[in-house]
Structures are given as C-alpha cells and as structure tokens.
C-alpha cells in the first residue's frame, strides 16, 4: 500500500509521492505519528549533524566570504562589499562566456554519459557468459585515480602520441585534440566519459536487476521487441535509479576540474575554461578566496537549477512496488 507511506498531503511532497496514494490517505493515530517522528529524529541525527558541521557550516562561511573583498592570501583584514564581487563577475564578458561554456558542456556530457551508461547496463544485464568480468572491465577506468588517467590521456592524445600514430597508420590525418580550441572540449568530454560511464553503469545495473522478472516475461508474451520493452518496461521502472544517476552525474560534471587542470589548463584560447576550474584557479592559484567563493556560489545556483529541473522531469507518475 503506497498510502501507508504517504498518508498525508502535507507530507506527501517527497520524491516518491503519489498524489493518488496521498488522496486515499487516512489519518493515523497521533501516537503512531509521534513514534515515527521520534525514530526519524534518531535515524537522522548523526547524518544531519555531519552534514551541518562538515558541509553546510563551511559552505555558509564561504557564502559570507563572497560578500567581502580582501587582499590575496587572506591574512589582511577584509572589507564588506555586499554583492560587489558578484557585480565584478557579471560585468566581465569572459565570465559570461565561462558560464555559457559550463552550461553547454553539461548539456552535452550528461545526456551522453547517461545514454551510454544505460546502454551498457542493458547489455550487461542480458544473459551473457562471464558477465561480471565485462562489468568490471568497463568499471575499471572509474577506479583509476583521475589525475593518473588524465596524465595518461594527455600522453595518448598528443600530436605525436599513440592515438595519432594509429590514426595515421590507418591513413587518417593527425588530430590536434587538446591543442586546438575546436577539439579541446570534445577531448575533455571523451576523457571524463571514459572515466564516468562505467561508474554510473553499475548503479543502473542494480536498478535493472531490481525490476520484477514477471514484467519482462509479460512483455515477451505481448510479443514486444527489445526496443519496445526498453521504453515501456525498463525506462519507466528505472526512474528512481535514473534520477539518482542523472543528478549525481550532473553534479560531478559541474564540479569537474582535474582533467582540465592537467590537460588543457583551461585553454587553448579559454575553450575549456569552465566555472569550477575557474573558481579553483581563483581560489587556490591566485589565492583570491573572496572572488573564488563568489564564483562557487554562482556555480552552485546554476547547478541547483539543473538539479531541480531533473527532479521535476523524473517525478514518479505511478507508484510501483506495492499492490
């Protein structure tokens, strides 16, 4: 009964909320509700304490920092400037370009990675020999420290590197990859996807594995082909893990900067300068932590908008898992 979990309209605002279920809700004794609230407090207290102390408190401090202006290095007294740092950023043509680049990057890389991860997850949940081996092989890039794999790709994609050696041996022409403003972003996407796809795949594999077998059997009885089965059975029943993967991947790509730092340094001609890399450079490279904090606040707000849209797009229309 979905209604057991979502008994009250005021509470039925969570992700799994079913309006139909909520409407059928019946009030339960307040003792029961108090008991649940008490358990919730016990279960949440440690995690909430950790989140407050280790994430939100320093984040609030960063927010405050963004309202001040100080000498680089941060030892000299800083002065309150309100939104002055934000004003400086928004008056800069280069910063607007950085924002646009970040958004375009995310509009490309996230659907690409999710589609590939989904394709792999579907393939890897079919009946194939030595399945766990193939899964691990795809997952391995995610286990290699990203600094290490960035360095390796930097060598592999050099103008005189092995990838170009293969290309020219096959009769193709040598590609500039990271050294041209036209290809640098695509090359970063390649590296980040090589790392990320296998990682997100495993979450989708678990999701597909959790789909009741009967539904696939029923689809087969209906003579549904693999593609129809995918869109009418797999996808609708995969919404929850898909939402997780989409949100987590989006966040990961918004804050991605190691490959950029190792491979392009934001270039050529700023073609790979994205917000997180820029903020990192401002904060740790130039030691301007006030301006860096303002850049991160803007980035976080854009990220928040993306994530909110994703929660909205992948809302659950019909509850499942209960009869």
């Amino acid at each position: 009964m979905q209604s057991r979990r979502m008994p009250d309209e005021r509470l039925a605002v969570g992700l799994g909320a079913s309006r139909a279920g909520a409407n059928r809700a019946r009030r339960r004794p307040s003792r029961q509700r108090r008991r649940e609230a008490l358990w919730a407090a016990i279960f949440l207290a440690p995690a909430l304490a950790a989140i407050l102390a280790l994430r939100l408190a320093p984040a609030a401090e960063a927010l405050v920092t963004s309202l001040y202006r100080g000498f680089p290095g941060g030892l000299r007294p800083q002065v309150f400037v309100g939104l002055g740092n934000y004003q400086t950023l928004f008056l800069s043509q280069a910063y607007w370009e950085t924002i646009a680049r970040t958004i375009v990057f995310n509009l490309v890389i996230n659907p690409l990675q999710i589609a590939m991860a989904l394709l792999l997850a579907v393939v890897m949940t079919r009946k194939i020999p030595a399945r766990s081996i193939w899964r691990v092989l795809v997952f391995i890039p995610a286990t290699i420290p990203i600094v290490g794999s960035s360095i390796a790709w930097g060598i592999a994609l050099q103008p005189q590197g092995p990838v170009n050696a293969i290309l020219s041996a096959l009769g193709g022409s040598v590609q500039p990859f990271f050294t041209s403003p036209q290809q640098s972003m695509a090359s970063i996407i390649l590296v980040a996807s090589w790392v990320g796809i296998g990682y997100w795949m495993i979450f989708l594999i678990s999701g597909i594995d959790a789909i009741p077998e009967e539904l696939f059997e029923a689809a087969k009885l209906d003579k549904a082909g693999p593609i129809r089965t995918f869109f009418h059975v797999t996808i609708p029943l995969l919404k929850r893990p898909l939402l997780f993967v989409l949100v987590a991947d989006t966040v990961a790509n918004f804050v991605l900067f190691v490959p950029i730092q190792v491979l392009t340094g934001g270039g050529p001609e700023s073609s790979t300068t994205m917000q997180m890399f820029n903020a990192y450079r401002t904060t740790f490279g130039h030691s301007s932590k006030n301006m860096g904090a303002a850049e991160v606040v803007i980035l976080s707000l854009i990220m928040l908008a993306f994530v909110a849209i994703q929660f909205r797009l992948l809302r659950e229309d019909s509850p499942r898992g209960s009869k």
């Binding site: 909320a17 984040a59 927010l63 405050v64 920092t65 941060g74 030892l75 007294p77 909205r312």
Partner: peptide
Amino acid sequence: MRHFTISLGAASVALLLALTGCAGATGGS
C-alpha cells in the same frame, strides 16, 4: 514533486541564511 522542487529552493535559502548568521564574518581581524 513540485513541492519538492520548491522545498529544495526554500531549504537552500533558509539553511544558508540561518548558517550565515552563525558563521559571521571571519578572518583578517
């Protein structure tokens, strides 16, 4: 779902405002 999206926005503002009060201006004094 819409409620959640709103919560996400409202909570972020509320949390940060509350914490901002605690954090106060730091450094450099």
